[in-house]
Design a protein around this nucleic acid. Structure first.
Length: 962
RNA sequence: GGGGGCGUAGCUCAACGGUAGAGCAGCGGGCUUAUACCCCGUCACGCUAGAUAAGCGGCCGGUUGUGGGUUCGAGUCCCACCGCCCCCA
């Protein structure tokens, strides 16, 4: 009979499964999105609406999608899905950054391992294929995350049309007169006669001659500085690269370090006070030394010492990087052979003098001693095998000995950079590079400099969070001129030509003409064709030699110009219906110095304004210990997007992302992901409860107008009204974690613990079409349709799944299901954001309910001891007595008298006023049985009297329902 | 070393310069009509009390990484330190 009665209840029914099985089931929905071209449908749906353009920052194409990259793309997806629901047209063209050293290096190493040698264009072809392979893999991985984009029309920086726009960015630099040529030291491989990047350096032990060298100070110079001049005086430097001495232009000392003039008997030397002992030890000096003067480094500035064997001065300069850890505290400075030296040289107006040619041998420049010319500066493979130092070192040592400027020497073993391919030591060598002046060049004084325009543009942009503006401002202000040339192969060529004397020829018109050819033929053509072909049909500017005498340059552009040109190549060309400037750039905070900045420079130079209206940044993922995820070591598998999805499914990962305040460090741990999974289940079950209780509800037929709804249901809609308003605020501020918190608490407290729980009695036991039941179903209907939209940007797959169940009673819309219906029904993502009627705002009702829920809480507290004592099981077994002398409370309780048993989920509530009672409301609890009541086997409530029906003894209300 | 941030319960997040709060997890129960679901209680110091009772303490216990400062009043503003993240050197 119990079974019989149970069948008379309106129990919830739905095919929406409780268990998500996301890992297994998500791919089907993703496949359906793709098959049905959901992205295209969404774009068509909003074709006439104002656009919100988020411009995608391109990930690099050399590996699987990392969880950090997944975070970035998911935040973009959440943003765009929200904007779409709000009615904006949201084109999203994903991009990939394809050129660059990491790929070139990886490919080159693979080739080397296989013993293959290929031409430049052959290497480029391999790089192209390598990059393309990762694009496809990453695309699959991004799709698996649920990211919706124009995947069929992505942008790639290696595409010919894109490359052409990169070249045109360069043309804009040239047009503005900003491009100039200057020397800069780079790592240089002698055997390969090529520049190397940091990543191509291997550190190996190397035996160098460490030498202490006297730089004589003339007597009159010393005297002018108040230094004793009656004996030979010299500044002693220490170096492990004797071959760089011909390029010495200065001696650096630290301004705050104390230096001494030490008398050694026959001579006096200047070294740092702290290093005097070690210097003497190196020279094995037996003679007693005594200090005759002490002076601060700062006071030595501009003191003109002499080069030990070349007739020129070597002035003393100041530099903060000088230490007293080793050496003499006086640092040999050759701006053409060291990065720090170069910067120091710039401060003192010293040239990046480098008398070493591409082949690593001294050139004949009239300054290098004639017998040095042609000597190799560093060891060849043969030299290394024979364990002998380089010819240049030998020559320098010999010359120092001859000029009696060698103070001491030692054999010195240290870690030294080597070329990864030839295994020979590398040299630091200044070579000509292309620079972009950020402060304007000759002839452009009338127009503001790029830096001025950039700084002017910053306040026009909305920076989220706001400190982003300060950060990029610092970077923009401090940035030196932009070195845009790289001696690489896998990149976009710098369209410059050279005559037989290596004189460069550069012209914006020529650059643009070549760009047009690259757009058609790809940039490989630059490497395969002779200059005459590259320039055929291109009118040469006056003063250029004939094309037959020119060769095309081999430098490539800094890859930051590649990605920094994306706004021109994509937005300016309205690719995928985008537009310039973008409404939003959204990347990690490291991009303040990267893409945000490179895009800003290219844009202000070419178009005079920033390419974005707003820039949103997120932090980086760290482990439980607060250390960055790669160093955290808490995961055995690599932290790729796929590895996490394989364990949790995309929607749990998306929920985790949404739950975090992403402007700060984002913590990732198993515990936190399990939290997200727990919250996911809460949302899923909330949808399930709602769907299952709407199984017999047709809004068009059964819905009840708001004014006629039961008070509890109106209250629920009031709560929903508030939730929606707050969620919109949170979304607009990009505070997705607030949306998460709000929805989580709404579902856990307002719905699950209160509203949904109270409703069970009504929904299950009343007659199908009972007004009270329909009233609650009306509210549930609104709750579902609002909540599913609020959560759709975050739980994109699950919200869509719930949506389909609401409309088709199955996972995915069927063809038949859609016949005769609006095709927009096919997906939640084709819906509009709900606009909730203002009448749902019921503050006074809410105030009443707040007080009633407070009493409810106290009722629950009062029931608990009886439960613990085993006197009571479910709350429906309880009969409650509320006693108050407080007129307000009495009015409140009386007004909602009928609602109280439902509200408390008890069988009876008696309200009495008592003059003797304390203030407030006193709660009394009894088992309903004590009142002589009987339990209705159908609805489980205890009532004074059961009545006989064909279904047995049940309560009058149930009898009526049947 | 320089620049930009962050630090509140085990976790995720709140809190106009004005009483430090939620959810989750944990712990203890209950239900079996959302059932691998759901409900109730408890849970950021200490003390006292207690079984159909809860209170007390506030200058002298604690309270937002630590220590100072400004203020009638500081999680919030300022300074220093510690730890961590991003960028640069």
């Amino acid at each position: 009979m119990a079974k019989d009665l149970k069948d008379t209840l309106q129990l919830p029914r739905t095919e929406f499964p409780m268990r998500a099985n996301l890992v297994q089931r998500e791919p089907a929905r993703l496949a359906w999105w793709e098959k049905s071209d959901l992205y295209g449908a969404i774009q068509r749906n909003r074709a006439e609406q104002p656009a919100f353009v988020l411009h995608d920052g391109p990930p690099f194409t050399n590996g699987d999608v990392h969880i950090g990259t997944a975070l970035n793309k998911t935040l973009k997806d959440i943003t765009l899905r929200y904007k779409n629901l709000r009615g904006f047209r949201t084109p999203f063209v994903p991009g990939w950054d394809c050129h660059g050293l990491p790929i070139e290096q990886k490919v080159a190493r693979e080739l080397q391992a296989k013993g293959e040698t290929v031409s430049t264009s052959g290497l480029r072809a391999r790089c192209d294929a390598f990059s393309e392979g990762w694009i496809e893999r990453q695309k699959t991985q991004f799709k698996r995350l649920g990211v919706l984009a124009d995947w069929a029309h992505e942008y790639k920086t290696k595409a010919p049309e894109f490359e052409a726009d990169i070249v045109r960015t360069f043309a804009a630099f040239v047009e503005r007169g900003l491009v100039y040529r200057s020397k800069k030291p780079v790592y240089w491989s002698i055997p390969f006669e090529t520049a190397l990047a940091e990543a191509e350096i291997e550190y190996r032990d190397h035996v160098s001659p460490a030498i202490w060298v006297r730089f004589p100070v003339a007597a009159d110079v010393a005297q002018a500085r108040g230094l004793p001049a009656d004996k030979p005086l010299s500044v002693v430097i220490w170096t492990t690269t004797p071959w760089t001495l011909p390029a010495n232009l200065a001696i650096a000392v630290h301004p705050e370090v104390a230096y001494v003039v030490a008398d050694l008997g026959a001579e006096r030397i200047v070294v740092a006070e702290a290093l005097l002992a070690s210097v003497l030890a190196a020279a094995k000096s037996e003679a007693p030394a005594h200090v005759v003067a002490t002076v601060n480094g700062r006071d030595l500035e501009h003191l003109a010492a002499r080069h030990p064997f070349i007739d020129r001065p070597s002035p003393i300069v100041l530099a903060d990087y000088v230490t007293t850890d080793s050496g003499t505290g006086a640092v040999h400075t050759a701006p053409g052979h060291g990065s720090e030296d170069h910067l120091t040289g710039l401060r003192y107006g010293l040239p990046a003098y480098c008398p070493v040619g591409d082949d690593g041998r001294y050139v004949n420049d009239g300054q290098v001693p004639a017998d040095f010319v042609g000597l190799s500066t560093l060891e060849t493979v043969e030299d290394l095998a024979a364990k002998r130092t380089s010819p240049a070192n030998i020559a320098v040592l010999k010359r120092l000995a001859e000029t009696q400027t060698l103070f001491a020497r030692q054999r010195y073993v240290h870690s030294y950079p080597h070329c990864w391919r030839s295994k020979t030591p590398i040299i630091f060598r200044a070579v000509d590079q292309w620079f972009v002046s950020l402060d304007g060049r000759d002839g452009t004084a009338s127009s503001p400099s790029p830096r001025a325009v950039a700084l002017h543009a910053l306040p026009e942009v909305r920076w989220i969070p706001s400190w982003g503006e300060n950060r990029i401002r610092g970077a923009v202000e401090a940035r030196p001129d932009w070195c845009i040339s790289r001696q690489r192969s896998w990149g976009v060529p710098i369209v410059a030509f050279y005559d037989t004397q290596r004189t460069p020829y550069l012209d914006a018109g020529v650059v643009r003409a070549v760009a047009a050819k690259i757009a058609e033929r790809g940039s490989n053509f630059w490497y395969d064709a002779p200059a005459s072909e590259i320039l055929s049909g291109v009118p040469l500017p006056a003063g250029w030699p004939p094309a037959s005498e020119l060769t095309a340059g081999r430098d490539t552009l800094d890859v930051w110009i590649d990605s920094g040109s994306s706004h021109a190549a994509v937005l300016r060309r309205s690719q995928g219906n985008t537009q310039w400037p973008a409404d939003l750039y959204l990347e990690g905070s490291d991009q303040h110095r990267g893409w945000f900045q490179s895009s800003l420079w290219t844009s202000v130079i070419a178009y005079g304004a920033a390419p974005y209206k707003a820039v949103l940044t997120h932090g980086f993922i760290v482990g439980e210990d607060g250390k960055k995820i790669s160093k955290s070591g808490q995961y055995e598998k690599p932290p790729t997007s796929d590895n996490f999805i394989a364990q949790y499914g995309a929607d749990v990962i998306r929920l985790w992302i949404a739950s975090q305040n992403f402007t700060e460090d984002i913590t990732l741990s198993e515990k936190i992901l399990n939290n997200a999974a727990e919250a996911y289940r809460l949302f899923r079950n909330t949808f399930r409860y709602q769907l299952s209780n709407l199984c017999d509800f047709d809004a068009s037929r059964d819905a009840i107008p708001f004014a006629h709804l039961d008070a509890l249901d109106r209250w629920a809609l009031h709560q929903l009204f508030t939730l929606e308003r707050e969620c919109v605020q949170a979304y607009e501020a990009y505070e997705f974690h607030r949306v998460y918190q709000l929805c989580n608490q709404f579902c856990a407290v307002t719905l699950s613990a209160v509203y949904h729980d109270i409703l069970k009695d009504r929904l299950y036991t009343l007659g199908t079409a009972h007004p009270l039941r329909r009233s609650s179903q009306t509210a549930i209907h609104h709750l579902f349709h609002t909540l599913v939209r609020i959560l759709a940007p975050i739980l994109s797959l699950t919200a869509d799944e719930a949506w389909c169940h609401a409309h088709f009673n199955q996972d995915l819309p069927s063809a038949e299901g859609l016949v005769g219906k609006d095709p927009r029904l096919a997906s939640i993502h084709l819906q509009d954001w709900p606009s909730l009627p203002a009448e749902w705002n019921q503050p006074s009702l809410d105030a009443d309910m707040v007080r009633l829920f407070d009493i409810r809480r106290r009722v629950n507290e009062s029931i608990e001891p009886l439960r613990a004592a085993g006197k009571l099981g479910k709350s429906l077994d309880a009969a409650i007595q509320l006693t108050t002398r407080d007129a307000d409370s009495l009015t409140l309780l009386t007004a909602h008298r009928d609602l109280l048993p439902e509200l408390f989920i008890v069988s009876q509530v008696e309200v009495t006023s008592a003059t003797s009672a304390e203030g407030g409301v006193a709660v009394g609890v009894r088992h309903a049985q004590e009142l002589g009541h009987h339990r209705c086997p159908r609805c489980w409530r205890w009532v004074p009297q059961l009545c006989s029906t064909p279904h047995g003894e049940i309560c009058p209300r149930c009898s009526e329902a049947l």
